[in-house]
Amino acid sequence: MKSEPQVINNEHDKLPAALAPELDIVLRVNGHDRTITVRPWVTLLDALRGRLDLTGTKKGCDHGQCGACTVLVNGKRINSCLTLAVMQTGNDITTIEGIAQDGMHPMQQAFIDHDAFQCGYCTPGQICSAIGMLNEGHAHTRGDVQELMSGNLCRCGAYTNIVDAIMEVKEAQGNE
């Protein structure tokens, strides 16, 4: 990263300035260092989907209002549409493609078993969010799970099945 600040002059009535230079950055995604070349305006979501071809992370609203883009950064769930790729260097990013060590993560299996999705578009975000929520350790009851999963919209209306799936994994973890 360059240390000298650069300023673009795009005052309103003037013609557009040259685009900010592209930067080579390293993102640690699913345990691998990946070098990409991006301008600062590339969100983490667009970097994952477009530059790294990790299209499992979904773009539903691009404004942090649906949760489809949820990924884990250093184990915590965030909306990848509301952060820039250049801001995420040095962090450990996990996407739906990286949550299972081998085979399926128990949360993935539970989603299948409970039919916790229909169209599947919100599903990777729901699963990452659910794993993040259990990591965070603040969901104690079914009601807690409902509240703490409310950042993930599901238009197909699979909510009750999603909670069933999560409760099953949560209870299995608790019994370990």
Partner: peptide, 18 residues
């Protein structure tokens, strides 16, 4: 989204200066 450059600041003072 418009065109912008990016810099990470190390201290509040540096950020304020920029």
């Amino acid at each position: 989204m418009n065109n912008f450059t990016y810099i990470a600041a190390d201290t509040p003072k540096q950020a304020a200066n920029i």
